[in-house]
């Protein structure tokens, strides 16, 4: 069973890199809040599978590459949470 990492900090925040270093092979990462800024930053190597919250992307007028991440809504976020063994909210 995998861990869901919910990242609400942007790549400039120390917790963002700490999170990436904790992601295991089967883990899932969900970007929320400022976390979605990672999608606009071409210098960031994002993990896979990667999800990002639609509202936060729209608010910041980002146009993420669909090959890099899957854009989801709150219902999917709830489903992801339930499917995970544990949740780490960064």
């Amino acid at each position: 069973m995998h861990t869901l990492h919910i990242v609400s900090k942007s790549p400039g925040h120390p917790r963002f890199l700490e999170c990436l270093s904790m992601v295991d092979t089967n883990d899932v990462v969900l970007l929320t809040g400022n976390g979605v800024v990672a999608l606009a930053d071409s210098s960031i190597e994002v993990p896979s599978p990667l999800y990002a919250l639609e509202g936060d992307i729209q608010a910041r007028a980002l146009t993420p590459d669909s090959a890099r991440c899957q854009v989801i809504g709150f219902d999917d976020m709830v489903a992801l949470t339930i499917q995970s063994q544990r949740v780490i909210s960064w």
Partner: peptide, 14 residues
């Protein structure tokens, strides 16, 4: 080992 410690819990919050 923080990695091991954090994975002992169901929900971890910063």
């Amino acid at each position: 080992d923080l990695r091991v410690t954090m994975r002992r819990y169901d929900h971890v919050v910063f």
